[in-house]
Amino acid sequence: MRPLRFVALGDSLTEGVGDPVGEAWRGWAALLAEGLSGGVPEGVPGGVSLELGGGPSDRPGASVEFTNLAVSGAQTRDVLERQTPEALALRPDVVSVVIGVNDTLRCTFDIHAVAARLDQVYAAFRDQGAVLLTACLPDPGAMLGLPGALARPLARRQRAVNAVVHALSERYGAVHVHAAEGAWLTDRALWSADRLHPGERGHRQLALRFHASLAQQGVATGPAPSAEPEFPVPTRSASLWWLATAGTGWVARRCTDLLPQLLTLAAAEVRHRARGTSARLDLGASHAVASALAALSGGEQPDAA
């Protein structure tokens, strides 16, 4: 009996940034893989054969093969053009597609393009019969603590991406986790020094939420990941050093091309607030989402609200 195949697609969140194990990142997807059939990965990242004890209810004794294709900085275009073909060739039984934040940090952001790409990716895996995992994500402006005029445009973009992900997840019957809100966003113990990536405890929370949903479907039959960290929390000095070196560079590389546009968007925010017409910006974003979903093939669109 062939192993159950779990393939993870996405960006730095799924790559595991914030959850270091040795010289590599681990992350929520690797933690989730441990509980799909009850075992422990023999190594991370990517391309790992897991010789586990149990399997889904209709596949007793199956092992799990976990492959992590996520790459830091990836956008929906990268997932569609690079990661998806490689993942389809592996013919996964379970596939996670968690992506979108990096799209919002680019001056080329286009919700129509994001929707079209995600529609193609989701459809390809569902056509293969894979169980599809998706998630809504928090907006980076709020997580970084940016001033309101700078944060609101990013929040509006992330809400648009989340609305598309939510609608398409319903269409394709995905196992969907709402990670864009809730107490976990304000619990500092769950987040790494950069405030954009979960720490080990946060990655474990994501894995637990996916595991609970998959357990209801009989896909995750192994034990749920522990909520408690396996490794000590980095010291404050170590976290500050990382943020001042690697972390600052990470943010700068992803926001450089956005900054001029973001300043323009912030100026528009200030003008609309002064005139009392801020609702027009939100309404325009909602119309863009509805238009993007309506442009997709596949019949009647789910509610994007």
Rank of each mutant, 00 (worst) to 15 (best):
A163H: 10
A180K: 00
R171F: 09
T235I: 05
A215V: 06
A207T: 03
E230M: 05
V233D: 05
W184N: 03
P234D: 01
T221L: 12
R204K: 09
A180C: 09
Q120C: 06
G145M: 12
P223F: 10
Q217C: 10
P138S: 11
P225K: 01
P138E: 14
E200R: 00
P232H: 00
T221K: 08
A180H: 14
A220E: 00
T186V: 07
L243S: 06
P229V: 06
T186L: 04
C136D: 15
H197Y: 11
Y122K: 13
E230I: 01
R188I: 04
D194A: 11
A220V: 01
S226W: 01
Q128S: 14
P153W: 02
L214M: 11
L133P: 01
L132P: 05
L240E: 10
G202M: 01
A151T: 12
V121F: 07
H166G: 09
T134E: 03
G199K: 05
Q216R: 13
V164D: 04
A149Q: 09
L214N: 09
M143G: 02
P223Q: 13
A244L: 15
F125H: 15
P138V: 09
A179E: 03
H197L: 08
S192A: 15
G173K: 03
H197W: 09
E200H: 00
W191I: 07
R195K: 13
G199A: 15
A212N: 10
G173F: 04
G218I: 08
A160H: 10
E181K: 15
A160P: 07
F231A: 12
G218V: 04
R171G: 13
S239H: 01
S213D: 10
R204G: 11
F210E: 02
E170T: 15
V121C: 02
L206I: 03
R159M: 05
A174M: 11
H211K: 02
Q120G: 14
S192D: 15
A227L: 08
C136S: 13
L133I: 02
G145C: 11
E170S: 14
V165L: 13
A124C: 03
Q158H: 02
A212K: 13
P223C: 09
W242G: 03
L144Q: 12
Q217N: 13
F231V: 05
G182I: 03
G218L: 14
A151C: 07
G145A: 06
T245A: 06
